[in-house]
Design a binder for these strands. Structure first.
Lengths: 213, 213
DNA sequence: AGCTTATTAATTGTATACAATATCATATAT
DNA sequence: ATATATGATATTGTATACAATTAATAAGCT
């Protein structure tokens, strides 16, 4: 069975997330359903579901019987998110170490070399995808779906931010080095080095993104 | 304006969370909308919104165009959740220290003494409420709404688990001591002691809850 | 028999109409 | 004049009907 078109509420969720990140709906804006019905050309119901999902991502706040408001996506917001993200990402990465098998390391290296190739072609979108796959391999081995789910939600936002504000060549080159450090620490089975590498990777990502705002 | 009745989707969300925690809908169960319509006596729409919200809490997984499945709420699930929770809770608690004012400490002590009174009356529900208020004072001062939101979501589940499986007198007595340790560390402005106290508090809560399953 | 392809049934998703609630403006009383 | 109550309007929430998709079943082919 081939993958079919996403349901309307998924498409609306993606569109609305873009509209929030791009600033079309800026922080504090009241999102009226009728307005969104007009903008996206669909009925209320898929919009209401998309709003619930975006509330789950922390992008909006819904007050029952009142309405939905857009969260402020500013430096403070990203700092807070990345501080939490760092805690979880470092924890999961270190945790994954015990479950790494040779074939997992191989997979990581394959994805890494693909990343380098995509970087050389300046294919930023491909880099984004490969970056996610790279970390997904690690997260899976951490064997903590609850933590992973939080990181996945963050990633939805980060991905949209990157697509909106771009990905500098310098940052991509640094990512290559940082991923290399992570791979080395895993091969060395060195949890301390891995913790440092994961932490460093997260901090740099945060700084780079905040500077783009 | 007085607080009015919750919307239907909120009530359904609460009911369904209870039904999942109690095991009426056990892990892996497919949740069909028609079935839920019958069980809760409301139409599809509020049920669909409740499902989205519970997916946000991590209690169910929705596959677009396929359906919703109940997550397994077992020891592994709670361990994973509490491991993540511990990271965030400890971080936020230590972080709050810099913002604590005398009146905040006073508020904490007031809530604590109320907790002791409720404990002496064996009013467990009141203990649950006061416990949440106690920690909310701290979370607010940590000034990281993103982290706080994750803890709040966890709390929805923990609260339901406690209401379902109960709260032992022994645990309540230990909570009193653990909260006392936290207050002392805050008064001493001692981040190391506070980190220890928060960590300890979280670990004990996890162990106690897991033993109730 | 085993596999593919139609056909039917079950289930999820969407649109629309209507009900409940909240918001805003206006009038009224003190 | 300020505050309070009253009514009109806008907005959110719910129910129902229908469309789209998936899953299950049966038919046909090699």
């Amino acid at each position: 069975m081939v993958p079919l078109a996403d349901p309307t509420y998924s498409r609306v969720r993606e569109k609305l997330r873009e509209d929030i990140v791009s600033g079309y709906f800026s922080g504090g804006t009241r999102l009226k359903i009728a307005e969104l019905v007009n903008r996206y050309g669909v009925s209320q119901m898929p919009i209401r579901e998309a709003l619930q999902q975006l509330q789950g991502e922390g992008l909006i706040v819904i007050e029952p019987n009142k309405g939905a408001h857009v969260r402020q996506i500013d430096q403070s917001f990203l700092e807070n998110m990345y501080d939490i993200r760092q805690l979880i990402e470092v924890y999961l990465t270190v945790r994954s170490l015990r479950n790494f098998q040779p074939r997992d390391i191989k997979e990581l290296e394959t994805l890494h070399s693909k990343y380098v190739k995509a970087a050389n072609k300046s294919d930023f979108n491909q880099c984004l995808t490969l970056n996610k796959q790279f970390h997904s391999v690690i997260y899976k081995l951490a064997d903590n779906p609850e933590g992973q789910q939080i990181l996945e939600k963050h990633w939805q936002l980060i991905n949209t931010l990157r697509l909106t504000f771009g990905y500098s060549t310098e940052r991509i080159q640094k990512v290559i080095l940082e991923h290399q450090d992570i791979i080395t620490a895993i091969k060395d089975n060195d949890p301390i080095a891995l913790e440092m590498a994961a932490k460093n990777h997260c901090i740099n990502a945060k700084m780079d993104l905040i500077l783009k705002l």
